[in-house]
Amino acid sequence: MPSIRSIETFAVPPRWVFVRVEADDGTVGWGEASLEGHAEAVIGAFEAFRDRFIGHDADRIEDIWQTGFRLGFYRGGPVLMSALSGLDQALWDLLGKRLGLPVWQLLGGCVRQKVPVYAWIGGDRPHDVATAARQRQDQGFGAVKMNATADMGWLDSPRSLDASIERLVAVRELGMDVGLDFHGRVHRSMARQLIRAVEPHRPLFVEEPVLSEHLEALAEVTRGSAVPIALGERLYSRWDFKPFLAGGLVDIIQPDLSHAGGISECRRIAAAAECHDVALAPHCPLGPLAFAACVQIAVTSINFAIQEMPIGIHYNFAEADLPTYVRNAEVFRVEQGMIAALDGPGLGVEIDEDRVREAASAGQMRWRNPAWRGPDGAVREW
């Protein structure tokens, strides 16, 4: 069996961390350990992984995952789990390429051939979001996600609800489905009012109505609402998701495959959600490898609902950023609101290694979350 010869990391623009694992038979696998604004910390975590896993059997993915998770003693959290996620993705990619099979085939085969997708839109006024939504329609999307609480204070005037409703209606009138992201920015009373106000307009889901650390507030806010409640981008393992599933607090979970343990762990999280009649919609405002990993889970999970696709004017990325480092960018084509299962070996994307190395060597990737402040100057959840 091939053993791991090298583990490399590359910080590349706009804000991504790519992971390259090479086996001693020359097979290479790629993954993504992007953690927005904290690339340096994640890259540092790979020092311990190199000490542990250089020379390890590259095919023993589960043993590597369990060793990486448990034997550092301190476990979980965004940094360590993002590093483990990128390594895990790369090992699955390597195995698939060595065997000439897509990862989804290694996971038992697909239950669907196409993956429904949505994309982010920005804009503070109804006209702005409608214009952005039309652009997404032209790109083949049937669903979008946008801010629900753009300028809303933690506790604000009931009049502030009107702007959120107007933006939602402007996009729904185009015949598109709309997810509303609250970002956990508002107090439970505002979240409760806003969910009640948008319910007649039938949003696709409401995301992070309150921060995930406030389980009791989440139960209060969502009680009696027919709007599907989604969260999970700030949860990093099946244990983090456990109380939300056991308490019946969510309708849709959104683990991020570059933060929540990669393909191995998110496969388990998806199965746990299925046991609780909860849908899966992985979070992914990241790069092409993270997105390709999400697709592997999407096509093999029966409770999958819809996938976030990381082409984002919200993040001021050029529309070409997603395929910048990928030779076969045509695999990301959106048609009638869906993309096809990725049929290539491994993750199904062909990385242009020369461009990755060139971009990383330039040393210009020091992305930080821009400050998000309200009209009063106070910092807001990003």
Rank of each mutant, 00 (worst) to 15 (best):
S3Q: 09
F10Q: 00
A11R: 13
W16M: 02
W16H: 03
W16D: 01
F18T: 12
A23L: 10
D24S: 11
D25F: 03
D25P: 08
G29C: 12
G31P: 01
E36L: 15
G37T: 10
A39K: 03
V42A: 10
I43R: 12
R50F: 09
D51L: 11
R52G: 04
D57T: 03
D57F: 02
D63H: 03
W65K: 03
F69K: 02
F73K: 04
G77F: 02
S82P: 00
L84N: 08
G86D: 02
L87E: 03
L87R: 07
D88W: 02
D88Y: 04
L94H: 02
L95T: 11
G96C: 06
R98A: 14
G108H: 03
C110R: 12
V111R: 08
Q113G: 13
A119Q: 08
T131K: 12
R134P: 00
F141N: 00
N147M: 11
M152N: 01
W154D: 09
D156K: 04
S157I: 04
S157P: 02
A163H: 10
I165G: 09
E166W: 06
L168F: 07
V171K: 15
V178N: 03
D181I: 07
V186D: 03
S189D: 15
I195S: 10
P200V: 10
F205T: 08
L211N: 11
E213C: 10
H214I: 06
L215C: 04
L218C: 06
E220C: 08
V221E: 04
R223K: 11
I229V: 15
L231T: 11
L235Q: 05
R238I: 09
W239M: 14
F241W: 08
K242Y: 10
L245A: 03
G247I: 12
G248I: 11
L257Q: 09
G261K: 06
G261P: 08
E265F: 09
C266L: 07
R267H: 14
I269H: 06
A271T: 15
C275V: 13
H276Y: 14
D277K: 06
V278Y: 00
A279R: 13
A279W: 08
P282N: 05
H283C: 00
L289C: 12
A290H: 01
F291Y: 14
C294Q: 12
I297W: 04
S301P: 10
N303M: 07
N303C: 10
Q307A: 14
M309W: 03
G312V: 04
I313L: 11
N316I: 11
F317H: 14
D321N: 12
V326S: 06
R327M: 13
R333W: 06
I339M: 06
A340R: 13
D343E: 15
V349T: 05
V349N: 04
I351S: 03
D352P: 11
R355H: 07
M365G: 01
M365F: 00
W367K: 07
P370V: 00
R373T: 14
P375W: 04
P375F: 06
